[in-house]
Amino acid sequence: MPCPCGNLLKRRSPPTIMRRRGHRSLERDETALTAVIEFLSAFALFLMILTAFLALAQLQMGSNDPAVDRLDRSAVQGLDRLTSDAGWFVPGNESAMDYQNATADWHLQSAEDLDEGRVQAGLVVDGALSMAKINAIQNLTEGDMVDGLGLDDGFSIHLTIEVITSNNSSRIGEMLFDGGTERRTAQASSTANRQFIQDGETWRIVLEVHRGGRLNNDLHITELMTRPASGGPEWIEIYNPNDFAIALRGWSLNHTSSEITSDHLFKSGVIAGKTTLLFTGDATSQAAGNASQVIDLGVHGYLGVGMFNGLADGSGVLTLRYTQIDEARPYDMFRAEWGGDTGLFMVTGQSLAWDGNTTATTSWFIEETPTPGDQ
């Protein structure tokens, strides 16, 4: 009789085979899951590399906006021209340039000559920034600088030169130059900067190039003489608080009183940055003090000398105005008033002086000892 054990063993075999098949299926699932995870990880890494590459390409190629690209190039190229060599100056005027007398010593020229000729300001001599050339930027108008750097029409700039590290702690943060159009007034801007290490210090130059923007024109009437003594001339003292020079084209003086109303529009002239200018009724007898320039308005009959009055003795208003190139209406930039309700009545030999605060009547006072040209 056959042994029943054999049948029993045969009946138990299928579950063992099923377990083996299930184990192999689980292994295949785990392998597939691992492959999926590895693929996703590799794909994520690929996306990261692609993103980094595109970002680098964006930095190298610039934005997709041609106007922004032009601003970026202008800032970089302008700074390169400013800091690559000593610069140059070609004397001349609107009709002709004197190329034979061109010179790298642009910093030795007057503000008037620089404005009439052509200049590209360069600040580097023998690989280092020249303080003499930095100081001479005050003889350049912002427009002169823009033209010299080869920037597009309608562009403006703001330039800063700062000491950022020094063995002398009192020098850290000192501004060697800070002037130009404010960024907040512009439609768009781009910035480039460069550092120079010299004489134990680090100097940083930052050039901002703007599209549009309102020029930082700001002139102050600081003192005026309406009743000169001993037959002397009337005079008006003007101060330029900006680091850049300001061309007088577009500026005008307006004087009103009960007896006199007169205007004078300036068609030429430049006042250097951080300097004082004197308008006078007679340049030959005018005490100039530290004024950088003396301009005779007596020849135009605007200011008087001796018994001739250009400005009212008793009471009057003197307004300094500016007209933007693309605008017709002048803006009142500064105002001085005397006599009437102001309580400011001058006698012979006294002047009206500004205290440096607001343009309100309370910021003016009678000066017993006038100081023309010594703002």
Rank of each mutant, 00 (worst) to 15 (best):
P2A: 12
R12E: 15
R12N: 11
P14G: 08
R21K: 11
R21N: 12
R21I: 09
R24N: 13
S25N: 08
S25L: 14
E27C: 08
D29L: 15
I37P: 06
M48W: 11
A55Y: 12
D69W: 06
L82K: 05
G92D: 04
E94K: 07
N101G: 01
A102I: 00
A104V: 13
H107Q: 15
E112T: 07
A121P: 00
G122L: 02
V125S: 03
S130V: 00
I137G: 04
Q138L: 09
N139R: 13
N167D: 15
M175L: 15
L176E: 09
G179Y: 00
F196Q: 08
I197R: 14
E201A: 11
T202C: 09
T202W: 05
R211Y: 05
L215I: 09
E223W: 02
E223D: 14
E223V: 13
M225W: 11
D243K: 10
A245F: 02
L248M: 10
L248P: 07
T256G: 11
S262V: 04
F266S: 01
G273V: 06
K274V: 09
S285K: 06
G289L: 07
N290M: 11
Q293S: 10
I295T: 10
L297G: 00
V299H: 10
L311W: 02
G314Q: 06
T319V: 10
Y322D: 01
Y322M: 06
I325M: 09
A328R: 03
R329P: 03
R329E: 14
Y331A: 08
A336D: 02
W338G: 04
L344F: 05
L344W: 00
G349P: 02
S351A: 04
T359Y: 04
P370T: 00
D374L: 03
Q375F: 14
